[in-house]
């Protein structure tokens, strides 16, 4: 128990520290590295709470896939290089950020949250593990949305090809 408490404080303080880094680093590559650090610390928080599946997904999806995508965009779009934060954006972003923070804080402190219901009580989850619990729901009750998600990915893929392909080749085809 002592160890979990220590881990919580270490992960959360590092997460906040790296989040400051994301906002205040002048070099955008450092900012992205801080973002990776934040995401890994958040996934550490998930691990301390016993949600090992979400922790692993956090690393796999955010820290690996999304951030790598950011790095690709930064390295291919020249305008991004060397541009640090500008004060004119902070006029809007700080109040909006504070508003979201306050809203989240009020809702999490004063909302009447439901304690967990259904078949998956903490004992059952401890017995079968997170992965099996999530998979059982995903492939039985939530099978339909899961399948539709694949359709969404297909549509997105078609769309990126249609909009991104070179037009002059297609034009010649259409003429000929």
């Amino acid at each position: 128990m002592e160890l979990t408490g220590t881990a919580f404080w270490v992960f959360s303080s590092l997460a906040v520290l790296s989040a400051f880094g994301v906002v205040f680093f002048r070099n955008i590559v450092y900012a992205v590295l801080s973002l990776i650090s934040t995401l890994i610390m958040v996934s550490g928080l998930f691990f301390t709470m016993g949600a090992e599946l979400i922790g692993a997904l956090q690393i796999l999806i955010y820290a690996v896939a999304i951030v790598v995508f950011y790095v690709l965009v930064i390295s291919t779009v020249p305008e991004f290089k060397g541009k640090a934060f500008q004060t004119k954006y902070m006029v809007i972003s700080i109040p909006v950020g504070m508003l979201i923070f306050v809203e989240l804080a009020i809702v999490s402190l004063f909302g009447a949250w439901k304690s967990n219901t259904g078949v998956f009580t903490p004992d059952v989850v401890k017995e079968v593990g997170n992965v099996k619990a999530v998979a059982t729901m995903l492939f039985t009750k939530y099978l339909f949305p899961f399948e539709v998600a694949s359709l969404i990915l297909l549509v997105a893929m078609i769309g990126s090809i249609v909009i991104g392909r070179k037009e002059h080749v297609i034009d010649e085809e259409a003429e000929g």
């Binding site: 809203e103 009020i106 809702v107 004063f110 909302g111 009447a112 949250w113």
Partner: peptide
Amino acid sequence: GNLDVGAVG
């Protein structure tokens, strides 16, 4: 009767 901040938010 129980419209609290969570539900309304």
